[in-house]
Structure formats: structure tokens, C-alpha cells
Design a protein around this nucleic acid. Structure first.
Lengths: 262, 262
DNA sequence: CGTACAATCGGTCATAATCATTCATCTGAC
DNA sequence: GTCAGATGAATGATTATGACCGATTGTACG
């Protein structure tokens, strides 16, 4: 009866999904650009933005819309992730090079590990276990990855799950490789963190993997923090950047830790 | 039960399989295209889509249908979540009114429950347990809420955690009130969902709370879906909107379910 | 500092497409 | 023949859309 099919447009709600993608990609999109891109009127574009804004997916501003930094709206981790960003990305690339398809890997919390997660989005046939909420968000929509979240009590400053629920879940899983960030690494004191309640969870994490790989930029090297997590010989591989003190790298290698300089 | 085969080339259920293939191949198919392709009326095309949607194989959108599972960006929850948005928000407000500070509540997955989570952001001294990633993101930055994530394997179409890790974590927690959405509610068949593997997790969820509160807009009422989750007497309270059929509400009250019309 | 101008916004309204529902008909099975 | 399920047409309800208009906001200019 009706043969209007070749109407190029995307009716209704699923156009909103495309608009959302557009906004997330371009960071800022004007009403006029949306009208042009989809061949719709200003009123409709406005309504779409209104609907997306209602659901908190974007943030309307005068003249258009910007992404709603909400899920990955990280308080402290956001500030930190810009420090040493270059080094962190290099470290993440070196870490990704250690991962093969078909493997099961654990990713811990921290901004460097998050960079690693970003690189894994396009992988196929990979199982990722994590207790980091930003990592989960980063990989949630990746079709090729089986994502296992650990659960537990959310520590809101770090956006990671910790506690006995986390530890119990850890006892149910195993990983080929464990990638964690750490607050401080020292040859004598080993791995140390700033937050005591997290220690037990960190120790449980170290037990689930055959190979422990620590990601730490040079600002963490040779430092000692409050809470002891594990001795240095728990670490198989440390990936850091070329800014790490030469003698620190040497000392680590002396005690049998493989050190990769990215 | 075996069907007929008449003048049309592709009778009944067989045709639905072909439609499913078509949708999966083309990503988006309009009603009119289906009518043309199979030589059937608009009404029949609609019925086929309805049947496929009920089984969770596709996702109906205005003007046609799209595949249920698709990698890019936000999954069907996005498409679905602005249908009946007004009703959902009213239902969410009625649900929030049942929550007092100091309580521990469980929030399930689904768009209506997500609206409830949005209302809880400003609460103080509240413990929220959830297996829904959107709910976690919504409440992650809320200082007054202790947030317990359940972990498990992430089901990417619904962004919820399911599986035996989830169920084990559930055995560790208890909640004063359990709020869940559901795909379909019927007096005789009770609660039913579209996705079979989720059933065990849903049942485990029902066990952790003293009071089970189901949130379902009127489009879910009197419907039956594929997988049985629980009989109707497992539900203590149903919150729906005023669009629910009067006789449905009456029948529920007859069997002892408290019904709140928002 | 205030005014004028333009862009943008939020709302109403009419229109057309789409949807859900009902009812009558058809087909094949028993 | 009777029956159940499937189908198609018709109907009223719902939704998406675009045009219009007054209100609001931002900005340039005197």
C-alpha cells in the first residue's frame, strides 16, 4: 500500500542514538549541524536533545549540546590522568603488546591501567576481569570482549570495588596476566598503597594470576607509601617509562624483576 | 499447533525466521519493507515483529525494528528507555517515596529502575546494592550513598551483571527492599523475562529482600514473556501507572499484591 | 551603562505517519 | 461440520514532526 520506504531519514528514537554518538565524538555539536546531518527541522533536533538530556546522556548548552561527563566523571582519577599522560600511554602500549587474543587478563584500577583498557576495546576473543568502574565503562560496549566485573563496595574516590565481596569473587576466577597500577614501588619495601582497606583486596588480586605485571610511571618509582601490599618478588614484570632512575631499574633487575622501559 | 500453509509463500513462524535474518543483515528494516518483501499486510508484519520482540530477538522501534544485540554504543536500553518515559518517572517517584534513609535497598536493571536511581542521588545514609551498570554509574559520585556492586559477567545488551559470580555475591548481602523491573507481569504466570540465562540471577535477587517491589509500566501488565522468573505471590508490591487495565489491578489485589498506581 | 538587535529557546498547534485493537474472513486439521 | 490459528481490513489512539510565535538570552554598539 505504502511505498515511501526510500525516506533516507531515521525515524524517531534510534536517530537519538546516532546524535549521541556524534556528540560524544565531536565534543560539541550545534543545533544547526544536527539539522543538516539528519535532514530534520530545528524543532525535532531540539526535542531529541531534550530527550537525551532528560536521560542524562548529554548536557544541553546554548546553541547545541556537549557530552555529559557523568559515568566516567571521575573526581580524583580525572585530575591525575592528565599528569604524565604521555608516559602513561606509552606504558599502556607496551602492556598491550604483552596481551594475545584468547587470553584472560585482570585489569586493576588506576589511570595507567585505564589507558591500557582503551587500547583493548578493539580486541576480539579476550576475557577481561576488573574491579575498576572506569575500565568496565570503557569496555562495556566492546563486542569482542567478555567482561567480568568483580563487584564489592565502591570506593568512590578511586571508582574501584573493594572489600570482602570483591575478594570472594576473586577466588572464583583466574587470569593469565594481571595488570595493576600501584601508588609506590620500592625495591626494599615492595608495593605500597595509600589506602589501608584496599590492601587485602590488592593481595587477593595478586593471587589470581600467573604473571603479575605492574604499570607505574617514573613518579612512582623508588617511592614508599603507607600500606604494604606485597614484597617486590611478587612482581614478575614492571613497565615504566624512560624517566625512571637508572639505579632503580638496575636494582629491580638484580632481584629478578623484568623491567620494560616504554 | 503446526500451522497452515496457504497462498503466501512463507507461512507463519517460518517467515518470522526470515524476517529476523533480514533485520540482522540490514540492521534496520521498516514495516513497509517487510510488507513488500513477503507480500503480507501491515498488520501481519506488526504481529511478527511483536512476536520476535517478545522473545528478545529484535528490538522494535518506531517505523520498524533493529537487531536486539548490537555492539555500537548504547544498546536497546537506549531505544527502550524513552518509551513511556513520563510513566516511568512517575513510577520512580512513587517508588522513591517508599525508601527511608538508613535503609538498604536493591535496585535491579531496567530503565524504570534507573529512573528511580536518579532520584536517590541526593539521599544520605542509604545503602544501595545493584547489578546494573547504569545504576552504578548514576550513583557512583553520590557521597551519601554506600554503593555495593554485585559483579559477574556483564550482559552487554542490558548492561547488567549476571551469572554465578553475581549469585554468589547475592548470598552475601541482604536488603530491606528489593526494586526490580520486569519484562512482563501476569496474574497467572507471574513474572516472566525474555532472556533465559538471566532467570537464575533474578531468582537469587528475589531471595535477598524482605519486601519485593516490582516496577512495571502499563505496557508490561497482563503480558507473558518467555522465561518464568517467579510466581505472582513472590511480589509484595507492584508499582505501575494509571494506564494499567482496571481488571488487572483488581486481580492482583485479589491475590494479595499491593498495587500502587502512579 | 543601557539600548537595540539577533540568535536561541520553549511552548502550542496542525498534520501525517505509525501504532494497537477489533472484527470478519480464510485455511487446514480433526 | 466445527474449531483454532493466521490473516487482512478498518478504526481510533498515539507519536513524530515541522511551522509558527512570543519570551529569553547573548552581544554589539552607542
Amino acid at each position: 500500500m505504502r511505498t515511501n520506504a526510500q525516506k533516507t531519514a531515521f525515524p524517531g528514537p534510534d536517530r537519538q542514538g546516532l546524535i549521541l554518538d556524534l556528540i560524544n565524538r565531536r565534543q560539541r555539536v550545534s543545533i544547526a549541524e544536527i539539522c543538516e546531518a539528519f535532514g530534520i527541522s530545528e524543532a525535532t533536533a531540539r526535542r531529541d536533545l531534550e530527550a537525551l538530556d532528560q536521560r542524562g546522556l548529554i548536557c544541553k548548552v546554548r546553541g547545541g549540546a556537549i557530552p555529559a561527563r557523568r559515568a566516567p566523571a571521575e573526581p580524583p582519577i580525572l585530575q591525575r590522568s592528565n599528569q604524565h599522560l604521555e608516559e602513561k600511554q606509552r606504558i599502556a602500549r607496551a602492556a598491550a603488546a604483552l596481551i594475545q587474543e584468547g587470553e584472560t587478563v585482570f585489569l586493576g584500577s588506576g589511570s595507567t591501567v585505564l589507558e591500557l583498557a582503551r587500547l583493548l576495546r578493539s580486541y576480539n576473543n579476550l576475557t577481561v576481569i576488573t574491579n575498576s568502574l572506569p575500565v568496565i565503562n570503557e569496555l562495556a560496549s566492546s563486542g569482542g570482549i567478555t567482561l567480568v566485573g568483580l563487584g564489592g563496595v565502591l570506593r568512590s574516590t578511586e571508582l574501584s570495588f573493594i572489600g570482602h565481596i570483591t575478594e570472594q569473587a576473586l577466588s572464583e576466577v583466574r587470569a593469565d596476566k594481571v595488570f595493576i597500577g600501584i601508588h609506590a614501588v620500592d625495591v626494599g619495601e615492595g608495593l605500597t598503597n595509600a589506602y589501608l582497606p584496599e590492601t587485602l583486596t590488592d593481595r587477593a588480586i595478586l593471587k589470581i594470576g600467573r604473571e603479575i605485571i605492574v604499570l607505574a610511571d617514573h613518579s612512582k618509582c623508588g617511592r614508599v607509601s603507607t600500606a604494604r601490599v606485597a614484597p617486590i618478588n611478587a612482581v614478575h614484570t614492571l613497565i615504566t617509562d624512560t624517566g625512571a632512575p637508572q639505579e632503580f631499574v638496575e636494582a629491580l633487575r638484580q632481584v629478578g624483576v623484568r623491567v620494560i622501559l616504554a
